[in-house]
Structures are given as structure tokens and as C-alpha cells.
Design a protein around this nucleic acid. Structure first.
Lengths: 225, 225
DNA sequence: AGATGTGAATGAGTTCACAGCT
DNA sequence: AGCTGTGAACTCATTCACATCT
């Protein structure tokens, strides 16, 4: 009946600028490299080779070089990488050189804990607003900002200037909240609701399913006896 | 010179029983399939084909079949899968047919929120204990169980029978807590501390780095302008 | 000499397409 | 006729090994 599935899916992710197509795994490693470099910086290390970096932080030297090479030439042949310089360039590459404004959607236990955890004492992330549909939460505070009504999501996004939403609503509410956020002009969403969201173009979505991570562990416990 | 790298690395992961070598990605998909089936069960759907399942939940039919085939024959050719049967078999395969006992290590904002989130109203997971090194927290409760002193970790693990630890301590404390948990006989650890833990054999470790997930989003915001 | 950056080789994971069973 | 289970083809990712530069 149906004229077969012709969905173009996620082709052509309107990659602008030099935005090379990059896998999540690669990006995640860049974050790991940056964090490692920050540790080295605190220790006063000035220069490091991919080999040393790998030894020190359980990484692969070839992969470090390949990952970095994708975005430019960051090192000096025969010498290695300047720790401060590479850290600064990765910081910029990952967009962490300016403060990102977070909106917490669904300020229950998990939402408020994540807000505090991600925004607390952090240069790169700042919780600028929280919304919830429970009337008794309205007016209370999360990370110093007042909780506002979910119904006014659009207005909250506009007034706060939030660009990233942390979605911590119940599973049943996630798809509708997603749509509202996209409509409101949010540009990226970190979703903790355990559902597969039907996506709309133009907005980055990253799913973090905590239960699935736990289930990865129980599989091995079950397998062993 | 060197007689080449002969490290056996992670061969032969003492895979007992039928425990086939399985990637995290595959396991995570099994969790997704199970959750999808549970939704169908609630809707009263009795039978489903890989094609329908894929259409409904944004999955790949070929991948569903391949993933399942790795663990046995779950369907009937020409017919499809029995929803209840497949759900039951995946539940067993993932070790979710018995209740898993969780220990929260580090009962700050994130730890207590995760404890509630993962253990609340859940058949498969139950928070059986919490430990923290802050004296003022001792004796308080998390998800109905009292918070005990971190120093008595060994005793808490033994008395509670916890098999899985949720590690939500500060980054600096994570490696030492990991060691203590392994010594205490914990069999799996879900780590939220943003450090790369040096692992010891015999214990499953899964890292969940929330900041890294956020940074995956900011990369794209930065790349677009 | 020493370490990067990179094409080539290998390995892992996904999709295709069809044989085989109901 | 229909849908699973699966080898083969293909795509994506990692590792190797070396030419290249300081």
C-alpha cells in the first residue's frame, strides 16, 4: 500500500562553515582531550606529544592525531603540541569560549540536579531559566533563577536568550515539549526522557538515556551468572 | 627491535555461558527494542514484524533482525515476532527479570536525584544504600534508605547486597572510590565523575559524562555561527 | 632525532538481498 | 505470500607505518 519508505532521513545537515561531518564519537574524544589538557595545564606541563598524552590518559596516540588533523594542524612536527595553545583551540572549536545559556525544561529531581550540576561554577554553561507545569514549583528557584510556567515556554526562551534546553520531563510529555522548544527557537536539546523523539530539522538533539546505560551493566551481570 | 606488540589486550573477556562478545551499541539497541515492545504491549499489539517495529520507532528493520539473531531465534519466519514473548526474552537477556540492587556512592544533588530517578517505581532497579563522606548527610535518607558513612563502604556493600554502584563523587575522589568498590566486591559501576578511571579486571564500568554530551551540542552551535 | 600529519591497511558495524521456513 | 535469519557487500572507524617537517 504505502509507496515505500522514501524518507531522506538525516542527509545534508546544512553543514555550514568548515563544519566537517563529524561523528559523535570523535567529538566526544575532543572533549576528553580538552579535559586532559586542562589537567596538564594545572600541573604546569607546557608541551606534550600524542604518545605521552595517550599514555597518561589511556588514549590512542594515532587516534589523537587523526582526530585533531580533521580540524587543522595543531602541533609542531618533531616537537609535539603546546598544551595551552591546543587547549585554547579545542575550547574554541567546541564552542566553549563563550557562555552557553541553558534552559531546564521539567524541574523535578533530575532536572534541578542536572541544572545545578551542569551550571554550577562553570565557565561555559549557565542555567538561565527553568520551566515546569506544576503550579507549586512556579516562583521557586533553580540555580538562582526562578522557575516559570511551562505554558509560557516561548516567552521564557525569548526573554532568557537560552539556546540549549535540558529536557527532563516525563516520557509522555517529551515529544510535545520537544515541538514547543523547536517552535520557540531553541537550537539544541539534551533529552533525558526515555523516548525516541521524532526530530525536526534545524535543531540538534542529543539523547541521554540513563536507564539504558544501567541496562548495559545488568546484561553482563546476567550473562555471568 | 622490539619483538612487536604482543599484548593480548582484552581478548577472552572470561565470557561465560553464551555471552557473545557484544558492543555497547548493540546492547543499547536491545534496550530500545525492549522499551518499544513494552509500549506495544500496553497498546495490546500481539505480533509485529521487524519492518513495522522499525517504522513505528524509527529503527532499521535489518538491524533489528541482526541484533536479535546474535542471541538466538526469536521470531517466526513468515509471521514476525510475538510481542510478549520477545519482550520477555529481552528482559531476561538484559538481566531485568530480577531486581538489581543499587548503591549510590556520593549522595549530593546528582547522586540523590539519580537514585530517585533510577530506583523510583521500578521493577528492575532498587536503591538499597547510599554512602557519603559528608558527616551531616549520615543518617538522612535517599529513596527510603539511610545514608551511611563512606568509610564503611565495605560493610555497606556486604550488608546491603548491592551489586551495582552509581558513582557520583567529585572527579578527584572517583579513582579511589572505584578501587574501594572493586575491593568491596561490587560487580558493576556506573560512573558519572568526569575522569577516565584506570580499570581493574572483573568489574564492569560504564562512564556517563554529562558535560561531554552537552559539549557535543555546543560544537554544532559554534560551527553554525 | 623526534613527533606530526596522512594514505594505506585493517577491523568493526551496518545495510543489502535472498535462501529458507511457516 | 510473507517475514525471518544470514552470508556478502558496503560503509564507517581505527590502527599502522612512513613521508614530512622542525
Amino acid at each position: 500500500m504505502a509507496p515505500q519508505n522514501m524518507a531522506p532521513q538525516n542527509m545534508a545537515p546544512q553543514n555550514m562553515a568548515e563544519s566537517v561531518a563529524t561523528s559523535p564519537a570523535t567529538l566526544n574524544r575532543l572533549s576528553v582531550y580538552l579535559r586532559s589538557l586542562q589537567t596538564l595545564l594545572r600541573e604546569g606541563v607546557k608541551r606534550i606529544s600524542s604518545q605521552e598524552l595517550a599514555d597518561r590518559f589511556q588514549l590512542s596516540p594515532a587516534q589523537i592525531r587523526k582526530d585533531l588533523a580533521r580540524f587543522g594542524e595543531f602541533g609542531v612536527r618533531g616537537v609535539g603540541y603546546d598544551v595551552a595553545d591546543l587547549a585554547a583551540r579545542l575550547t574554541a572549536l567546541l564552542g566553549l569560549d563563550r557562555r552557553q545559556r541553558l534552559l531546564i525544561v521539567g524541574v523535578g529531581n533530575l532536572g534541578s540536579a542536572l541544572g545545578r550540576y551542569l551550571g554550577f561554577n562553570d565557565e561555559s554553561f549557565q542555567v538561565v531559566a527553568g520551566v515546569d507545569s506544576a503550579p507549586q514549583l512556579i516562583g521557586k528557584r533553580i540555580s538562582g533563577v526562578p522557575i516559570e510556567p511551562y505554558d509560557d515556554l516561548q516567552g521564557v526562551v525569548e526573554r532568557s536568550g537560552a539556546e540549549i534546553a535540558v529536557l527532563t520531563v516525563p516520557a509522555e510529555a517529551a515529544q510535545e515539549a520537544y515541538g514547543r522548544l523547536v517552535d520557540a527557537g531553541i537550537r539544541a536539546i539534551l533529552n533525558f526522557a526515555p523516548v525516541s523523539i521524532v526530530e525536526r530539522p534545524g535543531v540538534r538533539l542529543k539523547n541521554v538515556d540513563l536507564r539504558i546505560h544501567l541496562e548495559e551493566l545488568t546484561f553482563f551481570l546476567a550473562a555471568r551468572g
